[in-house]
Design a protein around this nucleic acid. Structure first.
Lengths: 354, 354
DNA sequence: CTGAAAGCGCTAACAA
DNA sequence: TTGTTAGCGCTTTCAG
């Protein structure tokens, strides 16, 4: 109407009152029927349901929530969008939520980089019944605020070192250990390691698993072969390139802290004119969908990403039901997936002289 | 308290009343300050803001929305999660939304496969101010319901043939045309085409673009080389495999309707012992992040996915402000990205006899 | 400029 | 079993 204050036109919708009217009962009764209250006469219930159908009534969430009902929305806080690590977890979450008939409100943590606790307040006092947080770099302040408010939340693939938080993770240490042993079994001894973001516990665990395997096999780990990757392709590419150009003899295998890093490394390896797995073997971590699409297909430590999402939802829903539950920690098994990016180490023709 | 009815504990939060109290004004005044109403005495405004700060007040969205305010939430309906085509668009959306200070409520359309219009009602009468729909296979019923309610929405990478909908798309026809010409220029004449989901307009446009290029160059397109792919790796893999095993002579190039299909085809090609691009060239469509990670890096038609998301948000926000806007259609340019998956056609040693 | 009052649509005691 | 009565927290007239 008036293009000065552009308020969206108020849309009239069927309310619970309309239904009550049509069914000849009070609004409270309609509410009872809708919320599955058991002491309603069968005939009344039928009349109400019939009216609901006929009018195409759909509940108004905000009114319901405001009045003390439940929003059936849970929040998902992710560091960013568009990578399939998060996408895969999200898919698991989505499935479980669909099952439980919840909707998903998505938050990206790169927002509101300042005033974090305010941001959390906005989330928690909002329409969200609980919060799922995926992985890397959730500021501790978030968690404190959450805990303080006694707001239901669950961390995915990230443990909280400062306090007990409900967590869903996988066997990072063991996964890294096993993968390293595999490489060693293939006769590799000069194994490089691309670190993840060490502020994240999983990154540390993977590094430790790697070192432990080396140690158990009596192989010294040379620090010059441990390089940065930050869980990202680009930094991994750069570190790897630098490594391959500077160190001698070259590593014969590389263990990347996640698949994304492995992809970066693969690029660098190729640019140096080396072949995978003939000249150099590589293993990743995560088994994101791309891992089986790249060439050669990546040997990697599989995290059950989708399942982690599902379990997290289960945990969260339990906590919403009973907010006094002690923080649980669920650790799922990783699985070593052998594909085509690793081969046995053997002297090459050129090796003796290089 | 009582573990019979597990209602989440009611959380007391600071309300607008608390702030009003602390500032010694009425709740209405606080509301005015918060909503940026201009006729408030400077000193009053300051007192209110100070109280807001001090109490850590955060508005309650549902109350605000219910009372006629705006939720600052927009819905995003996607066919599914976890593939980077959608992820990349979503990233663009997220960026634009952050800018505009909106949050995102995510819906996956595989839900509620029945009672679609009810589902739409739930979305539209809910807390969502507008709706963004990504790509393939949005049932027409959705769109009708949306239009009927005069609810702001924008389609991304999907046009609505039955009626005018606001749309953000890219130059599918031209992109396919150009890519095909490129292949032809490389001396390919036996070019296979992997179709997308033909229920989607972009799939049809790409097919037409391909055919047009062939025609313009006087090359007959043989229908046996046009196979199904459904925009997915698996079906594309199967079709391609079948094709390579049955047809003679083999195609020397394949144009896949999207990158995902190309990946499936690549697998099939490799399993048949053929090399890319030596034996067979391949080009994709979309340029999702994986396209530059696979080996060989995929030559493809780039859709500005992220930008499409951003533009869609812009359009939607405009429509929310002014619901009388006629449906616009924004068509962004595709860009042909030459990488490593195509080579010139030339007689191979074996060619004469096979 | 600011307060009072009336809801937004729904749920939750409390009676009846 | 069902209706009545209060709000939930906020926005928005309508009077001052």
């Amino acid at each position: 109407m008036n293009n000065e204050s552009n308020t969206p036109k108020k849309k009239r919708v069927v309310t619970i009152m309309d239904v009550a009217h049509a069914a000849g009962v009070s609004d409270a009764t309609v509410s009872r029927v809708l919320s599955g209250y058991e002491f309603v006469r069968e005939s009344t219930r039928n009349r109400v349901m019939e009216a609901v159908e006929r009018l195409g009534y759909v509940a108004n969430l905000q009114a319901r929530t405001l009045a003390g009902g439940r929003s059936r929305i849970i929040g998902l806080l992710v560091p960013n969008l568009g990578n399939s690590y998060i996408g895969t977890i999200a898919r698991g979450i989505d499935q479980a939520l669909e099952h439980a008939n919840y909707d998903l409100l998505l938050y990206t943590s790169h927002r509101h980089p300042s005033k974090e606790s305010l941001y959390v307040s906005a989330i928690t006092n909002g329409l969200t019944e609980g919060l799922l947080l995926i992985a890397p770099l959730v500021p501790a302040a978030y968690l404190d605020a959450l805990r303080e408010k006694n707001f239901p939340y669950v961390l995915i693939d990230q443990v909280d070192d400062t306090a007990d938080s409900p967590v869903v993770e996988s066997t990072n240490w063991q996964g890294a250990y096993e993968a390293t042993r595999y490489l060693i079994q293939l006769n590799h001894t000069r194994i490089a390691f691309i670190k993840g973001t060490l502020a994240v516990r999983s990154a540390v665990d993977r590094l430790h698993g790697f070192k432990a395997a080396m140690k158990d096999c009596g192989i010294p780990v040379s620090e010059e072969l441990i390089i940065d990757g930050d869980f990202l392709p680009q930094p991994s590419y750069e570190s790897t390139k630098r490594l391959l150009q500077s160190v001698n003899p070259l590593p014969t295998a590389i263990f990347a802290s996640n698949d994304l890093s492995a992809f970066g490394a693969i690029d660098a390896i190729r640019e140096c004119g080396l072949h995978i797995p003939d000249d150099i073997s590589i293993v990743g971590f995560d088994d994101i969908p791309q891992a089986s699409i790249v060439y050669p297909k990546l040997t990697t430590v599989r995290q059950p990403l989708e399942e982690m999402g599902q379990v997290a939802v289960k945990l969260l829903l339990e906590r919403i039901e009973d907010q006094t539950l002690p923080p649980q920690r669920v650790t799922l098994e990783t699985e070593f997936v052998i594909r085509d990016s690793c081969g046995p180490y053997q002297m090459h023709k050129g090796d003796t002289e290089k």
